[in-house]
């Protein structure tokens, strides 16, 4: 873990530039946040294929739909809260329903937006996107995985929601290809399973370290694709350990925890707890302070896991 920390949004920006080189059909759209979403890198490299739509998210996604319908490969970016909130109906009716090949790359998701506060912290975006038929939902853990997820999304034919974060995060994933729908075993263990996604997977790994010191062998499974979910891997691990914890930077209603619970309750009912934001809005504060307040640090995760295991 000596590699430099980078934000998943930075990896996204770099991946777009790399992808744009060989794919002439790649177009990128933004809604006046290109410096923050990092699409500005693509704009600088390929100005003729970048469209700033202004502060108009409904139009942003509608325009992306039209580009896709005419054979282009659009990546459309804004903050997650605006993408899934302001433009939900456009994503539903102009993208998901007609199954158009639009990639919704939404940055600044979750609590770790930090100081901007509740209005800018998307905590329900996974729930909204997951409920749309045919929508693929991807939440990378780190820069390397985000970079590869962008390529995987570009190769995949269909609408994709890519959830990206603001802060720099540690590199935790190995040098492996990104396969949509596949979970990643970050650490093996027999005593309990932690299922995590996005930036929480590094905390989950640290929690497993703490638990190991207390003689609890924890299996950590990172689920970068929330839809379609790697049901087989989840059931396999749950059947082995009999205890499941989910961790996500999202409301515990409708996100990863709900998705895993849906699988386990039908296929392998075991003791389970969902960790995440407990059905409240966020607030201003540093990312670290917010994660601490909402119990989303390694220490909290380890504590919850231990309590559930007993």
């Amino acid at each position: 873990m000596n590699e430099k920390k980078i934000a998943t949004r930075d990896a996204y920006g770099e991946a777009l530039v790399a992808l744009g080189k060989d794919n002439a059909d790649l177009v990128v759209l933004d809604a006046d946040l290109s410096q923050s979403t990092k699409t500005a890198k693509f704009a600088a490299a390929y100005p003729e294929r970048f469209f700033n739509i202004g502060i108009a998210e409904a139009d942003l996604f509608g325009t992306a739909a039209g580009l896709a319908a005419a054979g282009k490969l659009p990546f459309a970016s804004t903050f997650a809260v605006f993408a899934t909130g302001r433009a939900y109906d456009q994503i539903r009716n102009s993208i998901a329903y007609p199954r158009l090949n639009v990639k919704i790359a939404a940055t600044h998701a979750g609590l770790t937006v930090g100081e901007d506060g509740a209005s800018h912290q998307a905590l329900e975006d996974i729930a909204l996107m997951r409920a749309l038929p045919g929508m693929t939902v991807i939440v990378p853990a780190d820069g390397r995985e985000a970079y590869r997820a962008v390529f995987a999304a570009a190769e995949f034919d269909g609408p994709v929601y890519l959830r990206l974060g603001r802060p720099k995060v540690p590199q935790i994933t190995a040098d492996i290809p990104f396969i949509i729908g596949k979970g990643v075993v970050l650490r093996e263990g027999d005593d309990l399973s932690i299922f995590s996604t996005g930036t929480m997977s590094s905390e989950a790994l640290k929690a497993a370290q703490i638990l190991a010191e207390q003689s609890l062998q924890t299996e950590v499974i990172h689920l970068p694709t929330i839809k379609p979910l790697d049901q087989e891997l989840i059931v396999q691990s749950a059947a082995k350990t009999g205890v499941a914890i989910t961790v996500e930077e999202h409301n515990i209603i409708g996100g990863l925890g709900s998705a895993v619970a849906e699988v386990l309750v039908e296929k392998c009912p075991i003791k389970m707890q969902r960790l995440g934001v407990r059905d409240t809005f966020g607030e201003s504060g540093s990312p670290a302070a917010l994660l601490e307040k909402h119990g989303l640090t390694a220490a909290h995760i380890a504590e919850a896991a231990k309590a559930l295991k007993q």
Partner: peptide
């Protein structure tokens, strides 16, 4: 393009035109 929810067709048209 599938339509029905009003107000969306012109944005889609712009995308095609681009």
């Amino acid at each position: 393009i599938s339509t029905g929810s009003l107000g969306q067709g012109l944005s889609v048209a712009n995308g095609m035109a681009l």
